[in-house]
Amino acid sequence: MISEGTAFTFAVIFGIITVLLVRSRDVHAWQAVCVGLFGLYLGQTPVLHTVHGLVIWLINGFSHP
């Protein structure tokens, strides 16, 4: 289960990225994924639990040497 603190933190991070992307007016594929993740975390949709697991898996994969 996702805690409210974790979901809020990810929503803020993806929200900041989204604002910066919209200001640049040039959105690439990975940036569109960030915008989509922001929407998922902000909306707390049912598919969020699966996506959150994938995001955590990716973060853990990139953080290990």
Rank of each mutant, 00 (worst) to 15 (best):
I2K: 15
I2H: 06
I2S: 05
I2N: 13
I2L: 08
S3K: 04
E4C: 14
E4V: 13
G5K: 09
G5P: 01
G5E: 06
T6A: 05
T6E: 08
A7S: 06
A7T: 03
A7R: 05
F8D: 15
T9R: 13
F10V: 02
A11C: 07
A11Y: 00
V12I: 14
V12L: 04
V12R: 13
V12Y: 13
I13A: 01
I13P: 02
F14E: 15
F14M: 02
F14W: 06
G15L: 00
I16C: 04
I16G: 10
I16K: 14
I17P: 07
I17W: 06
T18L: 06
T18N: 15
T18Y: 09
V19M: 08
V19S: 13
L20T: 15
L20G: 10
L20H: 15
L20P: 09
L20Q: 14
L20Y: 07
L20W: 02
L21T: 15
L21S: 06
V22S: 04
R23Y: 11
R23T: 08
S24Q: 15
S24M: 08
S24N: 10
R25C: 01
R25F: 00
R25A: 06
R25Y: 00
D26H: 12
D26P: 02
V27S: 04
V27I: 07
V27Q: 02
H28I: 11
A29Q: 05
W30K: 13
W30N: 08
Q31M: 03
Q31Y: 00
Q31L: 00
A32Y: 04
A32T: 08
A32W: 02
V33K: 08
V33I: 12
V33M: 03
C34I: 13
C34K: 03
C34W: 11
C34A: 10
C34M: 08
L37D: 15
L37V: 02
L37T: 00
F38W: 08
F38M: 04
G39F: 02
L40Y: 09
Y41K: 03
L42I: 04
L42G: 05
L42W: 07
L42V: 04
G43D: 04
G43F: 11
Q44E: 09
Q44L: 13
Q44H: 07
Q44W: 12
T45N: 07
T45Q: 09
P46H: 02
P46N: 04
V47R: 05
L48P: 05
L48F: 15
H49Y: 12
V51E: 05
V51L: 00
V51Q: 02
H52V: 09
H52P: 01
H52W: 00
H52K: 06
H52L: 12
G53P: 00
G53A: 02
G53T: 08
G53C: 01
L54N: 07
L54W: 10
V55P: 01
V55D: 03
V55S: 13
I56C: 04
I56D: 11
W57T: 02
L58D: 01
L58R: 05
L58Y: 10
I59V: 14
I59T: 08
N60I: 12
G61C: 06
G61R: 10
G61K: 10
F62E: 11
F62W: 15
F62M: 12
S63H: 14
P65A: 09
